[in-house]
Amino acid sequence: MKLLPHPLLSLALALIWLLLNNSAAPGQLVLGLLLGWLIPLFTRAFWPDRVRIRRPVVLLRLVGVLLYDIVVANLAVARRILGDPERLAPAFVEVPLDLTSDLAISLLANTICLTPGTVSARLAADRRSLLVHALDAPDPAATRAQIKARYEAPLKEVFESC
C-alpha cells in the first residue's frame, strides 16, 4: 500500500479546495493538502491505474489548440444555427480508434463533443471505433481525418507512447 497513490489527483483536489474557499490562507492550504492526501487514500479502490503523462509539453499544446478550437467551433456552430437549417448536412461518422486506454478514449470523446461541430454518440462494444454525429459535414472523410490528426494523435502521444 502506497502512502501517496495518486499525486496528480491529490494536487487537483487541494487546488479545488482552495478555489472552493476562494482563499489561499495557510490554514486552508494545510486543510486542502490534507484532504488531497486522504481522499485518494480512502478511495483508491476506485482508481486502479495510475495516470501517467508522458509528454507534458504536448498536453499543454493540445489544451491550447483545444481552447482556440472551442471558440472557433462555437462561432461556426452559431453561424449554422442562425443560418438556414435546410442547408445543413448532418451525418453520422464512424471514427476508428487507435487509442486503447480508458482515460484517453474518454478524453477524446469529451474533446469531440466540445469542438468542431461534432458530438460523440456511441463507443463500439469492442472499443475499436467511436460513432460521431456531425452538425454539418458535407465531407465525412475530412471530419474523420481532422479528428484523428488534430486530437487523437496528441492524446496517443501523451498517454500511450512508450
Binding site: N74, V77, I81, C113, L114, V119, L135
Partner: peptide, 18 residues
C-alpha cells in the same frame, strides 16, 4: 429551431457552455 434531435444536441452542448 433545428430539425431533429441529433442536430438540436449541438446548440446547448457547445454554444450554451461557452
Amino acid at each position: 429551431r433545428l430539425g431533429d434531435f441529433y442536430t438540436r444536441l449541438h446548440g446547448p452542448t457547445k454554444a450554451t457552455t461557452l
